[in-house]
Design a protein around this nucleic acid. Structure first.
Length: 948
RNA sequence: GGGCCUGUAGCUCAGUUUCGGUUAGAGCGCACGCCUGAUAAGCGUGAGGUCGAUGGUUCAAAUCCAUCCAGGCCCA
């Protein structure tokens, strides 16, 4: 007889093969059709849940998503989902950053020469269209990752209402006095007649004049150079841009370098860095010289030199940017023509003097050279210096020089009027630093990072001479340049932008917007200039807290959490903090979480040229989004995280293991109704209680790990639970009970009750990490009265405190340790070919003390626990030829081949096999189950003899 | 060059903080074996680490200190 049919083997339609790449899109479609996200919102509202707001940092609407974007969005989704399941109302509004140079740049390229004939408005329309295209592309990609949110109502920084708020917030900075206009050097292309951004600069080698110039010191230096006598002291500078000499205002020395006075025996004493004396003297062709004094840079600070060409002073200042790599250690400083020059100049109150016009020609301020193109003027300037005796040496030098990306011409650095938000006029810096300490930074070092940046940053330059962005919507007085601050005007601008978008600014004249009776508060003038510069895009995204959190009724200000890569300490966290503190005097977030960057298996950054880039689409197509999510879940994202085929392969193996474990449990629940057939905790076997004890540990750990955003802890615990606690112990032991017991037996129902609790708890725990798989498991779980249509409408399982059974746990820890020794003993016997399957064996265990007591307590269960055909125990006696445990003291295990016949049904070797008349091939236990099982089903007519 | 961070088996992670303390753990992968009633599954056993390097403090260092190397982000 074939007894296999009499067993209760697992039965489920839950597919073993995940087929994620195909199944996921179908699942997404179903969720969308079922309006799952809306249902979650409705449920949350009905239950009046506490909101949890993760505010999305907007990705830039350009290009396809890369693996880093995927990481970021998946992390956000895990957090949103886990908070929803923890009982919050976790609304997620995704956003996009739409303005800015890269889009304008790409549109430029698409338009080509046509652009010249187009109006600002029509170029802006093209940019808007371009951004819209990539928003659609990225939205599809994000949705494909399983990220849930308000995809049909995202926030876009180019939405009219958003643009209106950008202008409004900027206006508030103008009103409170933080916004001011000042000159700052920027890259300028004289041939294209335009300002250039860093990203528009290409570097190429170029040959430039290299000159050394003597600046005579006006102040008396006899204190510093006692042997100076009647000789003249000069500070020598070096530069490769002679045309900036007319704009020289200072000479910078390094505060820590050693300087010396060199007597050149011709009446001059030259001051330069000690380390560079020799090389300079060779250059100057001076062979006879003598160092006559050591000088500290600080001794020269604020001394005054004469400009070598004009009747003007040049101040000696100190700066850390000075190097000894080339030159003299004394740096020619023209604050209008160099970034570092400008910054160090600010500290000494020097102006950004830049007597150069839009065409790159000197203005009329520059005697002798007015109207000359600066590069052409180099020659004349050099000869003028030579004539006046200020030129110490000249040469040519090849070096890397910035060029315009479009016309390839050399660019210049030139100070132009820019708009700034002051860090200090309104105590913005101080207040921001105070706010930083009210925010929770995760990991903790985030605080140091952003604190240092805010502490040291210069004023925020918010103006860009560009087209695609939101204008700095302010007017300033034509006569005195005072910024107009007028609430009515600001309100009107806001309303205009809200209705027409920011384009309106470029289409209207001053008089269209300003009412006629407005006068300058400072000088009474009625003439105003409409600013046409646009705002730094960091300002756009930086005010998202105002444009999104404050505007949408289902969101909160401040947000509970911002979550971005660690580059955003300089970026969005930073700009958001400044705009929020500047206007609202508080940080817009309660906590800030950062993640690292995705690197390759060797820890190197990804780059196209190296060829180590992993694209999300490829991973999704090959493995499924779920594997990408598992990768995010398994990694400690606070550091950089690695990805490679090898890692993905490993995760996909791990996924299969989790999936199969669930499948096996589902298979054993096919005939179980949780509503009517569940067994009370008190009536369960100890093994079942132990399984719940372990589940308790997993769930507690998992839920608290979600709370701390430590998802890799959940992944590892969950995975280890599946393999160690379930697969190799609980489920393995349970097989005999589940298969051989009759369907409705108490022992089987006890096991099924536990299995159902485990799948239920496990599926819910994994739902935020693996939303597709959790839903699939959910679908195949037994129906119950209160089971929601989707697992994502549920919360984490309610953890029953009585599952926590420490004393039982301790007993089973020992039993499992003994079991581990038993498997070793069995393996030894198997290697000696004495047995094959463990059920071929019977065991004799010798133990002492508490181990013996414990084994004695569980004696009848040991056969099941060890999955062998028989176990007997002896106390305090030696066993011949037995396996001696090295881990459990005084434990030895004798493995012998089972002598009894093997039951055809349960495969256990038992002495009752052959004693049942009608069924000579099976054991009495099986016969009993068979009988009860048949009775139950009413299938066995001849069993009504009263024996059952 | 500066600021912040990281480095533990081939891979993913524990252990490092606050308190230095047996032989540094787990799983995967790998090798070998068992089973064929989770079967494109399941079970078992085993081999893998000078804890990035060097120096120091200490009776004792993966853990504390210093320097260096490698890598990442942000500045310059």
């Amino acid at each position: 007889m074939n007894y296999k049919k009499t067993l209760n083997l697992p039965k489920t339609k839950f597919p073993m093969k995940a087929n994620l790449a195909q199944r996921e899109p179908a699942q997404l479609k179903t969720w969308a059709e079922d309006r799952l996200y809306e249902k979650i919102r409705e449920l949350s509202e009905k239950e009046n849940r506490t909101p949890f707001i993760l505010h999305d940092g907007p990705p830039y609407a350009n290009g396809r998503i890369h693996i880093g974007t995927a990481l970021n969005k998946i992390l956000k989704d895990i957090i949103v989902r886990s908070h929803q399941m923890a009982g919050f109302d976790a609304v997620y509004v995704p956003g996009w950053d739409c303005h800015g140079l890269p889009i304008e740049h790409n549109v430029d390229k698409e338009l080509g020469p046509k652009k010249k004939d187009m109006s600002i408005s029509s170029i802006r329309k093209q940019c808007r269209k371009y951004a819209g295209k990539f928003i659609d592309i990225q939205r599809k990609e994000f949705k494909r990752l399983g990220v849930m949110g308000e995809w049909e109502q995202p926030y876009l920084t180019m939405n009219y209402a958003y643009e209106a708020i950008i202008a409004r917030e900027c206006g508030k900075f103008a009103a409170n006095g933080a916004l001011f206009r000042s000159k700052k050097p920027i890259y300028w292309c004289s041939s294209c007649n335009t300002a250039l951004a860093e990203a528009e600069i290409e570097y190429a080698d170029e040959s430039s004049p290299s000159i050394y110039v003597k600046f005579s010191v006006k102040d008396d230096l006899t204190d510093i150079i006692p042997d100076l006598g009647e000789k003249k002291a000069f500070i020598v500078i070096w530069t490769t841009t002679p045309w900036t000499i007319p704009a020289n205002l200072a000479i910078a020395l390094h505060p820590d370098f050693e300087y010396v006075a060199v007597d050149t025996k011709n009446g001059d004493v030259l001051i330069l860095a000690r380390e560079l004396v020799q090389s300079c003297m060779e250059l100057f062709e001076i062979t006879d010289y003598e160092i006559i004094a050591d000088i500290q840079a600080s001794q020269l600070e604020k001394k005054v030199c004469s400009h070598p060409m004009y009747d003007r002073d040049s101040l000696v200042i100190l700066g850390d940017h000075v190097t000894l790599e080339a030159g003299t250690g004394c740096v020619h400083t023209a604050p209008g023509h160099g970034r570092e020059d400008h910054e160090v100049g600010l500290a000494y109150g020097l102006e950004a003097y830049s007597p150069v016009d839009d065409n790159g020609c000197f203005t009329k301020e520059v005697e002798d050279f007015a109207g000359q193109f600066v590069f052409d003027a180099n020659k004349g300037i050099i000869s003028a210096l030579k004539d006046s005796g200020a030129l110490a040496a000249q040469a040519k030098m090849k070096h890397s020089y910035p060029h315009c990306w479009r016309c390839k011409q050399s660019v210049i650095f030139r100070a132009t009027p820019q708009w700034f938000i002051s860090m200090d006029k309104t105590d913005l810096r101080k207040r921001s630093l105070e706010e930083i300490d009210r925010v929770e930074w995760i990991p903790k070092w985030g605080r140091e990072r952003i604190y240092g940046m805010i502490e040291n940053r210069p004023d925020w330059c918010v103006s860009r001479q560009r087209t695609w962005g939101v204008p700095i919507a302010v007017f300033y007085c034509k006569d005195c340049e005072t910024v107009l601050t007028d609430q009515d005007t600001d309100d009107r601008i806001h309303d205009l932008f809200k209705e027409h978008g920011a384009d309106i600014w470029f289409e209207k004249d001053v008089k269209d917007i300003l009412s006629e009776n407005i006068t300058c508060a400072s000088c009474g003038s009625k003439e105003f200039i409409k600013e046409n510069d646009i705002l730094d895009v960091w300002f756009d995204s930086g005010v998202s807290h105002a444009a999104v959190l404050e505007e949408r009724p289902n969101l909160t200000w401040p947000a509970d959490l911002y979550l971005e890569g660690s580059d955003q300490h300089r970026g969005w966290f930073h700009s958001s903090l400044l705009t929020a503190v500047g206007i609202r005097d508080a940080a817009p977030y309660k906590a800030v979480l950062t993640h690292g960057f995705v690197v390759d298996e060797a820890g190197k950054k990804m780059s196209k040229s190296v060829g180590n880039v992993v694209a999300p689409k490829e991973v999704i197509d090959e493995y499924g989004a779920e594997i990408l999510r598992l990768w995010v879940s398994a990694s400690d994202y606070r550091d950089d995280i690695r990805i490679s085929q090898n890692i993905l392969k490993q995760l996909s193996d791990a996924y299969r293991r989790i999936r199969n474990t669930c499948r096996f449990m589902l298979g054993n629940l096919s005939d179980y109704d949780p509503d009517t057939q569940s067994v009370d905790y008190e009536s369960m076997t100890d093994l079942d209680k132990f399984a719940l004890h372990r589940l308790f540990g997993l769930l507690k750990k998992g839920v608290s790990a979600y709370d701390r955003y430590e998802f890799h802890v959940i992944y590892h615990s969950m995975y280890n639970f599946c393999t160690l606690d379930l697969s190799s112990v609980y489920l393995d032991i349970l097989k005999d009970r589940l298969y051989t017991s009759y369907s409705d037996s108490a022992k089987r129902r006890s096991a099924q009750t536990v299995l159902h609790i485990i799948v239920n708890g496990l599926a819910r725990l994994m739902a935020p990490l693996l939303p597709f798989t959790a839903e699939e498991v959910w679908k195949y779980m037994p129906q119950t009265q209160d089971k929601a249509d989707s697992i994502h409408l549920e919360t984490f399982i309610e953890i029953d405190e009585k599952w926590n059974n420490e004393s039982l746990g301790k007993k089973w820890d020992i039993l499992l340790q003994v079991r581990g020794e038993v498997t070793k003993a069995l393996e030894e016997a198997r290697a000696e070919k004495r047995i094959g399957h463990p059920l071929d064996a019977v065991l004799t265990l010798s133990a002492t003390d508490e181990v013996y007591e414990l084994l004695d307590e569980y004696l009848v269960d040991l056969r099941d626990i060890f999955i062998v055909s028989g176990v007997s125990i002896i106390k305090d006696q030696a066993l011949e030829n037995a396996f001696e445990s090295e881990i459990v003291s005084d434990l030895s295990i004798l493995v012998q081949k089972a002598a009894n016949s093997k039951c055809e049904r349960c495969w256990v070797h038992d002495d009752s096999v052959g004693t049942v008349d009608d069924h000579p091939g099976i054991c009495s236990r099986c016969y009993e189950q068979l009988e009860k099982g048949q009775l139950e089903k009413g299938q066995l007519e001849k069993s009504d003899d009263g024996s059952a």
